[in-house]
């Protein structure tokens, strides 16, 4: 599904060039459930941005379903993101002036789906994440856990192949955090969507079948390649 080959990314800040990712090679299959851990500044978000087509690597190759996606132009990338990828962020990033269903429907609107149809699908997805009674609420009227559910519904409404979550439980208490994690597991099982979760929480990582660890911009551990220590 996703093939990264010797991906490197360096940023230029003033005269100095810092290498954030160093030669990461990684293949993720459709329907996988994977976690990425690593210290702060190890390059997790940077890697996710590249996987999510928000950023381009300085070096290396990236193919989705065998297709080279690094050649695409910005608007084509927007289309690919819209159809293939769903994002969930630690800070939810809901639009405060749109109610829950309009937030969820946003990716469909950008796809040109008519409003009635978009609303129907958004409400359906809100029901799946357990918020059928909150479709008309505005983000400020929702709890943190509920907001993250809306964000997950938004990420999934377009039926993407990949769901990328950057510390999705980072701002939530342990109980809510577990509820959200259960939701990811359920969606992964029910929809067959590839889920990639960045987390600092070993408890969250442990629930993923595949676990990756970044250290200093390099892939230090991949549970699929090295047998986990007993």
């Amino acid at each position: 599904m996703l093939e990264l080959e010797a991906i490197s990314r360096s940023f230029r800040v003033g005269p100095a060039e810092t290498q954030v990712l160093r030669g990461i090679s990684l293949t993720l299959a459709a329907g996988e459930m994977a976690s990425i851990m690593g210290g702060s500044g190890s390059g997790k978000t940077t890697l996710m941005n590249i996987i999510g087509l928000l950023d381009r690597p300085s070096e290396g190759a990236y193919r989705i379903r065998g297709e080279d996606v690094l050649a695409a132009r910005p608007d084509a990338l927007s289309g690919l993101r819209n159809r293939l990828i769903g994002f969930v962020f630690q800070s939810y990033l809901l639009l405060p002036r749109l109610n829950a269903w309009r937030n969820v429907a946003l990716p469909l609107m950008y796809r040109g789906v008519a409003e009635g149809e978009a609303r129907r699908r958004a409400c359906e997805m809100l029901e799946r994440v357990g918020l059928s009674h909150r479709t008309e609420h505005f983000p400020p009227q929702l709890s943190g856990g509920q907001r993250q559910r809306v964000a997950i519904a938004r990420a999934l409404v377009g039926e993407p192949a990949v769901l990328l979550a950057d510390e999705p439980t980072g701002a939530l208490d342990p109980t809510t955090s577990q509820e959200i994690m259960d939701l990811f597991l359920e969606m992964n099982a029910a929809l067959g969507v590839l889920v990639l979760i960045i987390t600092h929480d070993p408890g969250v990582a442990a629930q993923c079948r595949r676990r990756l660890v970044l250290e200093g911009g390099a892939l230090a551990h991949d549970s699929a390649r090295v047998p986990a220590p007993c």
């Binding site: 927007s78 819209n82 994002f87 990033l93």
Partner: peptide
């Protein structure tokens, strides 16, 4: 800016 970033992430084109 964050809103713009989010919209771009979920598939807004520049024209949108």
């Amino acid at each position: 800016r964050r809103e713009i970033g989010l919209r771009l992430a979920i598939g807004a084109r520049r024209r949108d």
